[in-house]
């Protein structure tokens, strides 16, 4: 049976009959899609956890808990502590260290504390933002990759048509259908990636704002303590 004439347009059949470049493109896109969805879910869980932890910490902190007790608890479980807890821990640790050393001016202590908090803040933010660039790349590039596969597939289909005396739609239709699958895959990978990228950057921005506000407020509290001391 002449495969060009077969009307069997099952998805698997189309994919298996595609030309090698188109198949490579499809494999690439499936991989990108799988990876981007994996990151989407990882980020989703991580951001949910970060928001919950931040809510809980702010509630505890502004609820008037003892700072020393909080510091002890947080440093005992640093690995599982939330972002804001780590900032608090780093700042408080630095503050205590500097305060114990003699001859330290208040502004010097505060500068050191701020630097320690800022460093932790940057590191935590970096952790939150990890893999987001991958989502952005998949979202912006995979449609083009899919389009490349489609263009290639259509090219092959039309090349095959040139050797036939009489051109009919039935001769190019399977080739175009298989080529268009590449575009569909590109879009399938890109759309969720773009949506989740936008959403996650927004969520991370809000978290970053909260952490920066906390850093300022905590600095004020520590500064009052240096005065008091």
């Amino acid at each position: 049976m002449n495969p060009e004439l077969s009307q069997d347009l099952s998805l698997l059949h189309l994919i298996l009959n595609a030309s090698v470049p188109v198949q490579i493109v499809m494999a690439l896109l499936v991989g990108a899609s799988l990876l981007s969805w994996w990151f989407i879910f990882i980020k989703m869980f991580a951001l949910k956890r970060a928001q919950r932890a931040t809510d809980a910490f702010e509630h505890e902190f502004w609820g008037g808990a003892d700072l020393n007790l909080m510091f002890k608890r947080v440093s005992a479980e640093r690995d599982e502590a939330g972002e804001m807890e780590r900032i608090f821990e780093a700042g408080f640790r630095e503050f205590m260290k500097l305060k114990q050393q003699a001859g330290m001016s208040a502004s010097f202590i505060m500068d050191g504390t701020r630097r320690a908090m800022r460093a932790t803040y940057q590191r935590e933010l970096d952790g939150l933002e990890s893999h987001l660039s991958f989502l952005a790349t998949v979202g912006s590039v995979s449609p083009y990759v899919g389009l490349f596969g489609t263009v290639w597939g259509i090219m092959i289909a039309f090349l095959g048509l040139s050797s036939v005396a009489q051109a009919t739609l039935a001769q190019v239709a399977p080739g175009i259908a298989e080529a268009l699958i590449a575009t569909a895959m590109g879009l399938f990978a890109a759309i969720p990636a773009v949506i989740s990228y936008n959403r996650y950057t927004h969520d991370i921005d809000r978290l970053a704002n909260r952490m920066e506000s906390f850093m300022e407020e905590f600095s004020n509290i520590l500064q009052r303590q240096t005065k008091a001391a």
Binding site: W38, F39, I40, F41, I42, M44, F45, A46, R78, D79, E80, R86, G127
Partner: peptide, 10 residues
Amino acid sequence: LTRSVPRFRA
């Protein structure tokens, strides 16, 4: 510092 990430679940 590490933080456990639900990689498998994702």
